[in-house]
Design a binder for these strands. Sequence first.
DNA 1: CGACGATTTGAATAGGATCAATGGGAGTGG
DNA 2: CCACTCCCATTGATCCTATTCAAATCGTCG
Lengths: 232, 232
Amino acid sequence: MRSEDLPAVRELGLFADMESAHFEELMQVAYLQRFPPQVQLITEGDPADFLHVVVDGTVELFAASNNRETTMAIINPVETFILAAVLKDAVYLMSARTMTASRILLIPAENIRDIFERDAAFARSIVQELSVRYRDMVKLLKNQKLRTSVERLANYLLHEHKCQGANGALTLPTDKRTLATLLGMTPENLSRAFGTLGPYGVSVEGARIGLSKLDDLETLAKPNPLTDDPVT
Amino acid sequence: MRSEDLPAVRELGLFADMESAHFEELMQVAYLQRFPPQVQLITEGDPADFLHVVVDGTVELFAASNNRETTMAIINPVETFILAAVLKDAVYLMSARTMTASRILLIPAENIRDIFERDAAFARSIVQELSVRYRDMVKLLKNQKLRTSVERLANYLLHEHKCQGANGALTLPTDKRTLATLLGMTPENLSRAFGTLGPYGVSVEGARIGLSKLDDLETLAKPNPLTDDPVT
DNA sequence: CGACGATTTGAATAGGATCAATGGGAGTGG
DNA sequence: CCACTCCCATTGATCCTATTCAAATCGTCG
């Protein structure tokens, strides 16, 4: 892989604390691959051969069943995905596809498992990573079961607003179609949800969203750090 | 704690492989406590002080928001819960209450974290456990986002049927009220869902459920090993 | 300019929730 | 033992939320 990308990977929480020799060992068997947009990287049900690291671009995790499909998560650089399947040596529970042109680092699953056994610091990082992922899933499930779609959108907007500088506006990072299924609704319903948020100061111009009545929006959304905040 | 319960705890996947000295170390600081039914054990937002092990009885994990409440999982003996919060030294994302009279083993969080650092086998077990829990959550979210409530009930019945011996009948392990929110619906809706499953061979007599047309029910439910089967 | 896909809007329908009322045990107290 | 009470479960009616189907609009890219 290209040496200029190594530092970014090394700084990833998962790899930051491990022994250098082990990190290099992993990087020697790993390979970095370029993908165009909309390429399916992994498929539900396939065995987990590689840990994937998104070095560049954006990846969508999704799941399908009964002719329905839903977005489970969106992965940005520099982050890994499907760690749990790799560690369990099991099949994928979700599929993945690139949303934009991307570079993905592929690390053979058995090497991950091997070094996990030998490097205590790596093991600790893996546990931290898995815990975070688990807790993220808990939050997603709470979000889905305890809120209506308008509330989910309102909280999503507040969350993005905070992440993007809290200056009264934000830009949607994905097309609305994907955002809709990420939030557990249809694209049509997302449009209408934006409509019903109009009186709460939400204005829409393409991907650019303005929030002019933050207090009103928060009253509606009732954001909850135990459901919305990252990392907590 | 009572010595007759130790073997059951020791056989738990999480503790099975660790060094004996470490296991005993944990058991010495742990204490076993008895709780009557309907006692709240932990509360969302509180710091995670203890890893909980259900030695006897049944525990419900639930979450609340906006005056709504939903069951997230039901924990049976011998299983642990809130491992991720303990490892991250973070606050609970879910609350827990006993459903029946229960005995819970409480292990101080810091001791878990301490021994995790020193015992590689324990670290491995923790990773396996976390991976399983993560994947369970993924399945729950898929179930919730990709299926209607009738489908969720149908799949739940098929799953319980298999677990209980696949002999054409099953007994609901909880009251219907709890089952309803576990499946993401209201009690009224659960009644109606049972009603609509009547033509598919589902008969209801209290907690006793008969399944007389398994093929029809499966056609409706479209069970998916990547959403329904445990452990996979 | 024209075509295509994404988004929005409208109308109809279905899926679920809520509110209200009724039936049905399990447990309690007389 | 029986009446009473309470809570759970069911049923009905209605309302609200969200999906579906259809069509119009918009923007982008060739």
